[in-house]
Amino acid sequence: MSAAVGVLIVDEPQDLCPTVRATLEHLPELQTVQEADLEEAGPERLVALVFIDERRIADGLSRIGALRERQPRLRILAAFQALSGAELGALLAAGTDAVIARSGHPRELSAAILALAAGQACLSGPGAEPAAESGEALGLTPREAEVLRFLSAGFSNKEVARRLALSVRTVETHRLNLRRKTQTGRLKDLVSLARQLGLAPVLEEPRPARH
């Protein structure tokens, strides 16, 4: 059996759900570590989980940059509540390997850490990874990523439903899930997010809405 993945928790918020830390500490595949352990363990088995405070995002960017400089091969996962496309881009530019919404289930967070330690679900810029893998970093399912691709192109729920052979109600459900996981529903943020995730653009223009 391979060694457990070491998880360095950085800037843990005071209001963090106790279930999150309990999950990270009790899963046999994971082991929480201290910053001093960065020099001891193999970097390919270490993931830094950095919690981003959107009110002080510059501090988070500085912390990520310092971690990346200290341990270039360290995998870095940023957890956020709400980010604009520009802020997401800044995180990636600072050295973040993947991002995930704090609102997700603790098991989703753990799965993202394990995937990152295994070299999966890495975000390094537009088009760097297939959409299915990039979406996993935010906890998106492949279908949600596909819905995001159409919504970011300006298609209505009805048009998305027709294109993907889904019911309008199903698309509405996917849209609600996207809002919960990405903490945004604004078109400009969806466009930026789709670009950051490397989702292929929809080339055909959306039809004008019928009144």
Rank of each mutant, 00 (worst) to 15 (best):
E136Y: 11
A66Y: 10
D59R: 14
I57F: 03
V7R: 01
R63Q: 12
N177S: 14
A94P: 01
L114K: 08
R107W: 09
T182I: 13
G89C: 07
G119C: 00
G65T: 04
R55L: 14
L166T: 05
A165C: 10
F155E: 04
Q81D: 13
L91P: 10
I9T: 13
A137F: 10
A131T: 07
H26C: 06
S2A: 10
L178M: 01
I64M: 06
A93V: 11
L8C: 03
R163M: 13
S124Q: 15
L24E: 01
G198Q: 03
G104D: 04
V168W: 03
R75F: 03
L74R: 12
L176P: 08
G65S: 05
A161R: 02
V147H: 00
A22H: 12
E205S: 10
V5N: 07
L178T: 06
G139H: 12
A78D: 02
L114N: 10
E39K: 10
P201L: 03
M1V: 13
H174G: 01
T19A: 14
L24I: 02
R169N: 09
V168C: 06
E54P: 01
A78R: 07
A48M: 02
E35L: 08
E205H: 10
A115K: 08
L77F: 14
P13Y: 04
L151W: 09
R107I: 12
D59H: 12
R56Y: 09
V20K: 06
V99P: 04
F150H: 15
F150N: 06
R45P: 05
A86Q: 14
P142M: 10
R73V: 11
A153F: 00
Q196C: 11
E12G: 07
R70F: 06
I64Q: 03
G42R: 14
L83N: 05
L138A: 06
V7E: 00
P18N: 08
P18I: 00
E25G: 00
T184C: 04
R68Q: 02
D59S: 09
I100M: 01
E29I: 11
E12T: 11
E25P: 02
V47C: 05
F80S: 12
L30I: 05
S152I: 05
R73E: 13
L74W: 07
E54T: 14
F51K: 00
V160D: 01
I100D: 01
S152V: 04
A4Y: 03
L109H: 02
A4Q: 00
R21V: 14
L8W: 06
